[in-house]
Design a protein around this nucleic acid. Structure first.
Length: 428
RNA sequence: GGAGAGAUGGCUGAGUUGGUCGAAGGCGCUCGACUGGAAAUCGAGUAGGCGGGCCUAUACUCGUCUCGUGGGUUCGAAUCCCACUCUCUCCGCCA
């Protein structure tokens, strides 16, 4: 959520941001509500001030056994008027806060401007796509032939977009997860978190999934809980409604979770294979930083995720999303796209974003800056960042397609062998 | 699921015959004094939100709200009433 004061003082900047995102939200109404809200509030507070003065006087008189009839009468009248005004104030306040929850973040100045993904900018291309002296197959053909992916039975027991991993497929999935977590915790200073996979409404609102994107989530009606679509949600909300001591920043967390997405509106897209599932595994990276360091930390976080791809020997490119393709809560995002020989294209495998104080304001996550100065500074909102490091299912896809052999077997990348205990799936 | 107890500031803990209580005391923390330095001791300070004023301001100042959340009673509520949420203890069930 944006700062109402910022919108009030820089309406043009916000309008420009909205138009860059192709967002039709109209600020005019909000600004009018804000103005009415403030003038009614001043009115109400003036009355309350008078009332407090009188109440104090009444207390004093009563304790001296004196009458205070006229004062009591005036307070009574004031209370009636104040109650009416407060009704207005509360009404306006609610409209304002609802509006604030559906306004997207302002893109950072470095974000390429454009109406859609066509304006995304390839920042760098890393690694060499493998050469094959045969026609490379896609992962679902490879996986089914090796009997490590079972799509039909996934559909039988759960439904479309659910898949069963079997044998070395299941083991490789687990090996990938552990390899990533070990890299992030042992070499990159992230502290591991294992959070709940179900969260409440306040948590979903804190990171921006609610109220706008409820149809993308799985929901448990009985308890009013949601299945998390990413570990970003529980991990970012870890510090909701807290004021952190400045010296603990930056906080770096990594978390493995299953992720659940309803994929509403994705009918017909990526219907085959593991690319788009209702349930998938992901290792996430989350950072809480000061405003000064968040963009430096975004570069580092992106590099930390890239390191996974480098160690697995996978070719990829880094793409800066344009204003038209940027997610609702993000100020800037780099997508990592891995090369998939079977699809003959680069495919998103990680998304690394700086949300600046957008989520922190929603989730009320602050810190107390304690610079060399002596006085204790006012609390400020932290900046939050996160990125996949990486999506495990899509990493499995990338390995199957990039390391496939002419005989249908798949070589296991060196880095994973200590984790799974075999160096090849299928073949001799 | 059944029975009971409770929710106060960074922590702990007073306050429940309604009145000057945003709230005693202690701990912690910050600054200062003392010291060669430190400890101890002494002094001062130490919640957050919102809004107004000041040219901008997280600086200053004024006002208002907040004692789990939301309502109610009252001239006035941390204190009384109602609902909800959460925590703890005991019993039951359970990976």
């Amino acid at each position: 959520m944006l700062d109402l004061k910022f919108i009030r003082n820089h309406p043009e900047a916000v309008k420009e941001a909205l138009s860059k995102r192709n967002n039709p939200f109209d600020l005019g109404e909000l600004l009018a509500w804000d103005e009415a809200y403030r003038s009614r509030l001043v009115e109400s507070e003036g009355l309350k001030s008078r009332r407090n003065t009188l109440s104090e006087e009444i207390g004093r008189l009563k304790s001296q056994k004196q009458e205070a009839v006229s004062q009591m009468q005036e307070v009574k009248e004031i209370s009636v008027r104040a109650k009416e005004i407060d009704q207005d104030v509360a009404d306006l306040e609610q409209r304002i806060s609802r509006a604030l929850l559906v306004i997207p973040n302002v893109p950072h100045e470095s974000v390429p401007v454009g109406s859609d993904e066509g304006a995304n900018l390839v920042v760098r291309v890393e690694g060499e796509p493998p050469k094959f002296d045969f026609e490379p197959r896609n992962h679902w053909e490879i996986g089914e032939a090796l009997d490590i992916l079972d799509f039909a039975r996934g559909v039988k027991i759960a439904g479309a977009r659910f898949t069963v991993l079997k044998g070395k497929g299941a083991q490789l999935e687990r090996a990938i997860t552990n390899f990533m977590l070990d890299l992030h915790t042992r070499e990159q200073d992230y502290t591991e978190i294992f959070p709940p996979f179900l969260v409440n409404r306040a948590t979903m609102t804190g990171t921006g999934q609610l109220p706008k994107f409820e149809e993308d989530l799985f929901h448990c009606d009985r308890e009013d809980l949601f299945l998390i679509p990413t570990a970003e949600v529980p991990v970012t909300n870890l510090y909701r409604d807290e004021i952190l001591p400045g010296e603990v920043l930056p906080i770096l967390h990594t978390a493995y979770t299953a992720c659940f997405r309803a994929e509403a509106g994705a009918a017909g897209r990526d219907t085959r294979g593991l690319i788009r599932q209702h349930q998938f595994n992901k290792v996430e990276l989350v950072k809480f930083t000061t405003p000064e360091s968040s963009y430096m930390e975004l570069e580092r976080l992106t590099d930390d995720a890239e390191e996974v791809l480098r160690r697995l020997g996978l070719a990829y490119q880094v793409v800066a999303l344009s204003t038209g393709d940027l997610g609702f809560s993000a100020a800037k995002t780099y997508d990592l796209e891995v090369w998939l020989p079977g699809a003959n294209t680069y495919r998103e495998i990680s998304s690394c974003s700086n949300f600046e104080d957008f989520q922190a304001r929603r989730a009320n996550i602050r810190y107390r800056p304690r610079p060399e100065g002596t006085r204790s500074a006012r609390p400020q909102f932290v900046h939050t960042l996160n990125g996949s490091g990486l999506a495990v299912g899509r990493t499995l896809v990338a390995i199957l397609e990039n390391y496939q052999q002419a005989d249908g077997s798949v070589i296991v990348p060196e880095a994973l062998r200590p984790y799974c205990g075999f160096d090849r799936i299928g073949g001799g």
